[in-house]
Amino acid sequence: MAITRDEVEKVSLLARLLLKEPELEQMTGQLGAVLEYIALLDEVDTANVEPMAHPLDVVDAFRDDEVQPSLDRERALANAPNRDDECYRVPAVLGVT
């Protein structure tokens, strides 16, 4: 299954990446090659095979509903690339520039 440059561009938006030439062209080629290799799986008959999302067949790991101390705000915000005294700051979520 080949992937087109257009599809790669669309996926890059979905993945919130920005690919410019020549990266876009290179990515298209490399993803295409990997997908071609992956098509190998088409030859496996998986009818009636249960998917296996996880190696463990364990269930039910819970914690009790107890409040644990939170991070001090200063420590929580310490790694923020942009912040004020109380909050993280990001470009406007409303889409204004």
């Binding site: 929580a76 004020d84 909050c87 700051r89 990001v90 406007a92 979520v93 409303l94 204004v96």
Partner: peptide, 16 residues
Amino acid sequence: SMHDEAVGRADSRIDL
């Protein structure tokens, strides 16, 4: 997310 109304700021503040 809270839009910052302050003049000259076009960003949002995030409280988690």
